[in-house]
Each structure stands twice: as structure tokens, then as C-alpha cells.
Simulated assay, not measured.
Amino acid sequence: MIPAAFDYVAPTTVDDAVRALSEAGEDAKVIAGGQSLLPVLRMRLAAPSKLIDLGRIPELRGVREDGDTLVIGAMTTHYEVQRDPLVREHALLLACATDTVADPQVRHRGTLGGSLAHADPAGDLLAPALALDAELVVSGMDGRRAVPATEFFTDFFETSLRPGEILCEIRLPKYTGWSAHYEKFNRVAQAWSIVAVAAAVRVENDTIAQARVGLTNMAATPVRATAVEQALIGQPATPEAITEAAQHAAEGTAPTTDGNADVEYRQHLARVLTSRAVTAALST
């Protein structure tokens, strides 16, 4: 199907993009990599009056260090995130999750910021952002503001982005020396996660000193498995301790029933995949 007619603008600065979005009003849409928006347009589930393309804004791309913080531009593609040495060194969990996103074609076009702003609870990058205490910097006519990941995802496909705001960059504390793994369960390769677990751990003297665990598709927003984290900290890095801690994975979740799984099965998957994810992280 062909999308409905719309005006198109490709600003070259964030200020110009914000201005264009503000002037266009509620009927405008922002396009990043287009991997989520274009299918919606083609099915005419959305019919914006204006499309604002962020692809020509250099300041929205790239990875850099800012002291103890890793900064990733919202328009940085999945392919670039996968291969960036700074991401691999300081935010390995994000790189591991990005490795599982769709297929090479999508990873070359899709962007980190676009995925986070789309806020699909089955998307693979929301849980890692939450687990790693990401801070999302957005820009609007009133200036810039930083939103913690815990406050950014508000509901099913909804975020705290206000009208006229765009996501500019993602800021992550450095997790240098941490081990990580993203365990994803789906029916076929390249499909959305039925359930997935993002796990990052730091070990000292064979003891788990710190842990971060995020769950994908276990609620309308990504979920931090804090009960698992608390159960892991201070425990020996053994299969028995990991299995016991993983039994807390479904606590505080609100999974849905759909054609792929019911609530009980998703809760079971959360426990099993958490054990696998932490075990795999500790083996890296």
C-alpha cells in the first residue's frame, strides 16, 4: 500500500528539527531509521501531514566519552553500536542486545534512538537501557532535559516525550569490566522477543559484587528485575546461586497473553532465561 501524501523536510541541526516539529503541530511525525515508522505509513495506520527526517543532523550520530559517561547519539545505527569499541568496552550489554536485533539490513538502517522512542515492549534495546540506568536527553522549544530510563517508558508504545520534543542522545554510566549477555526467546530467527533477559554482572573474588537485570516483553514497559539483582549480590558465582536468584524474575511483572504465549508461560520463560543470561554472562 502507498502512504498518504505528506510534506517532507530534512533539517541539518537539532534546533531546526525542533522548530519544524513545533510548527507542524500534532500531525507531524519524526523519522529516524524508518524501520518502525515506514511500515505503519504504508499500511496507513498513520497519516502525518509532515515528515521530519533526522538523518541529516550530524550531531545526532556517533559514540563518545564524557568523563565516566558513555554518550551515544540517537541517530547512531544498530550496526554502528554493535561495532563501536567504546560500547563494547563500557556498555557490553547494549552491544550484546543489539547483536540480536532483526537482520543485517535492519541493523544498517535502524537507530538506537528510534528504537527507544518507538517504545515497543518487545523491542530488544529498552530493557538494556533500563538495566544500565540510561539517561535519555531530549530537546524541545524550551531547551534540553534529561529523562532517566525509569521515567522515559510510560506505557505500551508510549514515552514521556512531550509534543515538539525529539530524542537527541543516550547517556550511560560506564560499566567497564562488567560481563554481560542478552538471552532472547523467539519462535524464528530475527523475530520479536516473546521474552528476553538483559543481564550484566561484575564479579570480585568469585563473588557477584553487582548485578543489573532487565526484562523484555514482561509488561507494557521494560522491567528491572530488582529482586533478582538483590538475590545475586554477595552470592558465589555458582550455578546453584544463579538458579535460586532467577526464581525471582517474574516478581513485579505484568505479562500479557497473546498468540505466542500466555501469562504463566512468559513467567516461566523469565525465570529460565534469567538463569541462562546470568550464567552466560559469567562465562564471558
Rank of each mutant, 00 (worst) to 15 (best):
residue 111 T to Y: 07
residue 115 S to A: 14
residue 210 Q to F: 15
residue 168 C to K: 06
residue 6 F to V: 07
residue 62 G to C: 07
residue 281 A to N: 08
residue 270 A to R: 01
residue 154 T to M: 12
residue 143 G to D: 10
residue 192 W to T: 02
residue 216 T to K: 09
residue 182 Y to D: 06
residue 176 T to I: 08
residue 110 G to E: 01
residue 28 A to H: 12
residue 238 T to P: 06
residue 67 G to H: 09
residue 97 A to K: 05
residue 168 C to S: 13
residue 252 G to K: 03
residue 110 G to L: 04
residue 201 V to L: 15
residue 249 A to K: 00
residue 185 F to H: 14
residue 200 A to L: 09
residue 113 G to E: 06
residue 239 P to D: 04
residue 270 A to Y: 01
residue 236 P to T: 11
residue 195 V to K: 03
residue 199 A to W: 10
residue 32 A to C: 10
residue 120 D to R: 02
residue 167 L to E: 06
residue 195 V to S: 02
residue 14 V to N: 07
residue 172 L to G: 03
residue 159 T to L: 04
residue 150 T to N: 08
residue 212 R to D: 05
residue 198 A to C: 07
residue 121 P to G: 05
residue 235 Q to K: 10
residue 41 L to P: 07
residue 220 A to F: 15
residue 188 V to R: 14
residue 284 T to R: 15
residue 37 L to S: 05
residue 139 S to F: 05
residue 231 A to G: 05
residue 203 V to Q: 11
residue 113 G to Y: 06
residue 121 P to I: 02
residue 190 Q to I: 02
residue 28 A to N: 05
residue 206 D to P: 04
residue 32 A to Y: 12
residue 241 A to F: 01
residue 102 A to N: 09
residue 104 P to D: 00
residue 16 D to M: 09
residue 21 L to G: 04
residue 106 V to A: 13
residue 45 L to V: 09
residue 151 E to H: 14
residue 40 V to T: 11
residue 272 V to P: 00
residue 252 G to E: 04
residue 103 D to F: 13
residue 47 A to C: 14
residue 124 D to S: 06
residue 246 A to T: 08
residue 269 L to K: 00
residue 270 A to M: 08
residue 197 V to M: 03
